[in-house]
């Protein structure tokens, strides 16, 4: 187990390096290959009125004339060891992990990300808890009452959930619950969990439900089909032959076996969501990673975009690792070697 985790951690670090290299390539190498000169890249960092001289100076300062490997080395070193920037109004140290320095806001990217992470994390935690519970419960009941009105209704709603985009369901929910009925918080409100848990939940309940509606549908379908399969397994027949009440057969024997694949997908979904729920955060005007990314992209603020990309990649790699370990915890047949 320990050996497995160590090996996977080493693998995860390597993978992150690959991601960083790819990200770096997308933003700095591909444009050069497409014919952009160092000056073209640097022109973004100077005012619109800058003359060629200033642009060239900036390109020098930013190191765009250096070989690409050296540029990447600098980028990677920033992440690991931190970097110093002296081309803003004042020299500034950007401590590790330094994902870059935004010239637009004149601040390093990382503290920004750290600021917004709690919002995204809160969003992911609450939403995932709701969709997991709702989806699995719906799926189990649908599977047990196959063909019943509940099953058909649930699967119909599930279909709607998968097909309706979040900016539609989100706005609809806001319109009904916040603006018409006034029972939930309007968008753009967030209170830190540590500050006031009740307010935290009140502010986030609508986005949670909106995300959960989208995901729960998939989980209900997954659970339902998994349950149907599991309930025809031999070990379920054995459990019944022992004289177990049907409740125990379903919840202890059936659900336990069905959950394994769900755990996998759940881990990956949460990992993905931690990298920013772009649509939800935009719809509800929450200042999370996703909205940060949208704003950064809109402003063509490359260091921020790269920072978000790296953070998202980190969460996905981490989620993969956690899922693999969870797998062994859930299923004793899985030996991690």
């Amino acid at each position: 187990m320990i050996v497995f985790i160590i090996r996977r951690l080493v693998g995860a670090v390597l993978l992150l390096f690959v991601v960083s290299a790819v990200t770096f390539s997308i933003f700095f190498v591909v444009p050069r290959l497409a014919g952009a000169t160092a000056e073209d890249l640097a022109s973004r960092y100077v005012g619109k009125t800058a003359d060629e001289q200033q642009v060239r100076q900036m390109a020098d300062k930013l190191g765009f004339h250096d070989p690409l490997v050296v540029q990447y080395g600098r980028f990677a070193k920033g992440i690991v060891a931190g970097a110093d920037y002296d081309y803003g109004p004042a020299a500034e140290h950007c401590p590790a992990p330094c994902f870059g320095y935004s010239f637009l806001t004149q601040a390093p990217v990382w503290p920004d990300l750290l600021d917004r992470l709690p919002v995204t994390a809160s969003l992911a935690a609450g939403a995932s808890a709701i969709w997991l519970l709702a989806g699995v419960a719906t799926g189990v009941i649908s599977a047990l009452r196959r063909g019943s009105i509940f099953d058909r209704a649930a699967m119909g709603v599930a279909l709607a959930g998968v097909s309706l985009p979040i900016f539609f369901t989100g706005l609809l929910a806001l319109g009904i619950f916040s603006y018409t009925l006034g029972v939930t918080a309007p968008g753009s409100s967030y209170t830190a969990l540590a500050e006031d848990p009740a307010q935290w939940a009140y502010d986030l309940i609508l986005p949670w439900i909106t995300i959960a509606f989208l995901y729960a549908a998939g989980y209900a379908r997954l659970t339902s089909s998994g349950m149907l399969e599991t309930m025809s397994e031999d070990f379920i027949r054995t459990a019944r032959a022992k004289g177990l009440p049907e409740r125990t057969v379903v919840l202890k024997h059936g659900l336990r076996a069905t959950l394994t694949p769900i755990v996998t997908i759940f881990g990956l979904d949460v990992g993905l969501l931690l990298g920013g729920a772009i649509l939800t955060e935009s719809t509800f005007s929450l200042n999370g990673i996703g909205r940060y990314a949208i704003l950064a992209i809109g402003a063509n603020d490359l260091p921020k975009v790269m920072g978000v990309t790296m953070v998202a990649a980190f969460f996905i790699v981490l989620a993969n690792l956690v899922v693999d370990i969870l797998y062994a915890v859930v299923d004793p047949r899985v030996r991690l070697t």
């Binding site: 397994e233 031999d234 070990f235 027949r237 054995t238 459990a239 032959a241 022992k242 024997h253 336990r256 076996a257 859930v330 299923d331 004793p332 047949r333």
Partner: peptide
């Protein structure tokens, strides 16, 4: 009354 089945690997819960 109790029953034993053909394939004990699939008839016992793996977890």
């Amino acid at each position: 009354m109790a029953m034993i089945f053909q394939d004990p690997l699939s008839a016992m819960h793996p977890f």
